[in-house]
Amino acid sequence: MSEHIHPATRIGHVHLRVADLERALGFYCGVLGFALTQRYGAKAAFVSAGGYHHHIGLNTWDSAGGGPPPPGSTGLYHLAVLYPTRAALADALRRLDAAGIPLTGASDHGVSEALYLDDPDRNGVELYWDRPEAAWPRDAAGGLQMVTQRLDLAALRALTA
């Protein structure tokens, strides 16, 4: 089993159980700006960016009115949304600020800059952009050296000022 998966393979979408579909749509479409691509009755919906069929599925099939899993249980740590540019990430931060949604973290990983927050169902969400690969930090042997440093939010906010 030494063969690797095809290098062009990507994660296509994530499907989340939510307690309130309209509240989840308000966050993913209203705050983050995803487009609603389809409703599946009153209990599920699909949202996307750029006309894709769906990046995120939301459903209440087994979770209507439910709460998040308790701390210490298994499940989703976070979903990550990759923005194409630093300016697009700055716009996402502007949207969060305008909606009064607090960050749970913000990190510069060397390879990327990331914002961390919770959706209304306390699913973890990472919003990030990747630096160009040529700018990724490397060790003397050329190996990738990801880091976790404090992200300069003021500089990111200044991109939309």
Rank of each mutant, 00 (worst) to 15 (best):
A134C: 01
Y77M: 10
D62P: 00
T85W: 02
V14K: 01
T37F: 00
P70A: 14
A98D: 15
H15K: 03
L16V: 08
A140E: 15
A44K: 05
L153P: 00
A155R: 11
P84D: 14
P7W: 13
P68I: 00
G12W: 01
N123R: 09
E126T: 10
A90L: 10
G75F: 08
R23V: 15
F27C: 02
A114K: 05
A64V: 06
Q145W: 00
L127Y: 03
D121N: 15
D139C: 07
E133Q: 13
P69M: 01
E22M: 04
A158P: 00
D152N: 13
D108G: 04
R131Q: 04
H55D: 11
G75H: 09
G30F: 05
A158D: 15
A45R: 06
G100H: 11
A99V: 14
A161Y: 01
S73N: 02
R10F: 11
Q38G: 06
H109C: 06
R157K: 13
F34G: 03
A99R: 14
V81T: 07
P102G: 13
H78P: 02
R23W: 00
D108Q: 03
A154K: 11
D130W: 02
I101N: 03
L16D: 05
L82F: 00
F27M: 01
L144Q: 08
P84E: 12
E126G: 10
L58R: 08
E113I: 03
T104P: 12
L159C: 08
G143A: 14
Q38Y: 10
H4Y: 11
A19N: 09
L25Y: 09
D118H: 15
L117F: 11
D139K: 12
A92N: 07
P84G: 10
P137A: 01
D62A: 10
L115W: 11
A99I: 14
L96M: 11
A155D: 10
L96Y: 08
T85V: 04
A49Y: 14
E22I: 06
L32Q: 07
G142I: 05
H15M: 11
D118R: 14
H13P: 00
R39T: 02
A44T: 05
H54P: 12
G30I: 05
L93I: 08
Y128V: 03
I56R: 03
R23P: 05
E3K: 09
